[in-house]
């Protein structure tokens, strides 16, 4: 009985705070993406000709975890298969956050474009059966284009 109560409390905490966290994060991401929209991100290697000499490696990374409610919801969903929205939004948030952090680093260097951007994913878990977290890394070469 006690463990059931704990389970329900964790579920409620996850549902309420996880939801708030996610909404706030999306709001912050939209603001950050707007602020760094002057730094263009490309995943092509070919550089334009009108380039100021230089280029520095920039990167951004983030480790994120899903909330308890979403873990349980995800596991229930896995019985039937199909789209796992809770994990989709987690990865979307992580990817966007990693790119924004990379742009922030490029901005600090005075660059205005990032070429050859790569995204790397790795699962960080304490136990294999538990979803611990996921790391998203974005890296690329920041350059300055002559105006």
């Amino acid at each position: 009985m006690g463990s059931l109560v704990t389970f329900i409390i964790l579920l409620m905490i996850g549902l309420i705070f996880g939801g708030i966290n996610e909404r706030n994060h999306f709001k912050r991401l939209r603001a950050d993406e707007e602020a760094f929209s002057h730094i263009k991100v490309f995943n092509i290697k070919t550089l334009p000709d009108n380039l100021e000499v230089g280029g520095a490696l920039v990167s951004g990374n983030v480790v994120v975890a899903v909330d308890y409610f979403k873990v349980i919801a995800g596991f229930l969903k896995m019985i039937f298969g199909g789209q796992l929205r809770s994990f989709e939004s987690l990865l979307e948030r992580a990817r966007r956050e990693a790119i924004v952090r990379m742009q922030r680093q490029a901005d600090a260097l005075g660059a205005d474009a990032i070429y050859n951007t790569r995204l790397e994913f790795s699962a960080i878990g304490q136990q294999p059966q538990k979803i611990g977290g996921a790391e998203l890394l974005a890296y690329g070469t920041a350059v300055k284009i002559k105006s």
Binding site: I13, G18, Y68
Partner: peptide, 12 residues
Amino acid sequence: KNIVGGELRGYT
């Protein structure tokens, strides 16, 4: 942090 989700800053 896994209960409420979000960024795990220590790991980052």
